[in-house]
Design a protein around this nucleic acid. Sequence first.
DNA 1: TATTATTTTTAGTTTAAACTAACTTTAGTA
DNA 2: TACTAAAGTTAGTTTAAACTAAAAATAATA
Lengths: 167, 167
Amino acid sequence: MFLTGKKRGYLGKKMGEDDRVARLNVTEETYVETIDALMRERGYAGVTDIAEELGIKSPSVTSMLKKLDALGFVKYTPYRNVTLTEKGRDLAAFLKEQQRSLQAFLTLLGVDEIVAENDACAIEHILQAPTLERLSKFVEFTQATPQGRSWIECFKKYEGVKKSPKR
Amino acid sequence: MFLTGKKRGYLGKKMGEDDRVARLNVTEETYVETIDALMRERGYAGVTDIAEELGIKSPSVTSMLKKLDALGFVKYTPYRNVTLTEKGRDLAAFLKEQQRSLQAFLTLLGVDEIVAENDACAIEHILQAPTLERLSKFVEFTQATPQGRSWIECFKKYEGVKKSPKR
DNA sequence: TATTATTTTTAGTTTAAACTAACTTTAGTA
DNA sequence: TACTAAAGTTAGTTTAAACTAAAAATAATA
């Protein structure tokens, strides 16, 4: 099929390394996003806050912070609040933009707000750069051109050829 | 943020259970898809074939097959070829349709064939049902209505307002 | 049919990312 | 300042899903 194995761990494709920023795996990126969000919302990010936000326990956070520090995404000093490094901020910004764009896209297509947010969040770590580009372009098109704008109206009205009686 | 922890293991949201078929985690579903594909392509699915297809080693396959058998998705008898149960076939069919639809969607938006296939494959296990519905509806719209058809032409021509010099 | 090769399984190991229990540091308050 | 509460860390455990090495079953061939 379409999956190539990696050295260890879970199944998953290995994507091209054509990204603009240094990337991490889904779990790690989620930590970076969470730290970024907390910094914005409360001005700081403590271990407990992160744990709470992610629905996990603090020791799990501590060990991941060490890892992210070693990878250069986070500045971690024991018993101190965490901060993102330049590299970490770059990634966070990238992910945030990515997510914003994805969510806009899904919403545009009529996906419910909450669902769109969730799904955007979930797939942003997975989609390849070219795909993202195309989706953004689409959103842009529907905003920047008259055809695009009118088209959206059209789609909103459209409710399918026939409601096939699905049980 | 938008992730709720689960009992154990990796971070990830818990989605609503509103699906039409019994679902599994990404890894498990990938096995089911692979078995289904092999059955179609070669008429049977051996442990080695599956392992090869997934780029992993055979013992990993054996143990997953036991699990999937216990879960009722697969008929596993030691040293025999594997088959899918009704439940397994249902899931495979669901996933195949899902993927077909996703891929069509991405391709429609101008994502390269290969990339679209990969991404469709990767996110099909993650997207929620309502999102999928919306995407399908979109594809349908672009095929079933004149507005939809003409719109695609329009989008294909569109190449953005200005190429902002990135960097 | 006996032998060899291939396929599959068993048993035990590794890894990432969670967990619990117990300890240490820091912060808050009498 | 001393004491308690809260936050964070350490050490060791668990789980899923990979892995390796070696044994067992099946298949292919002389």
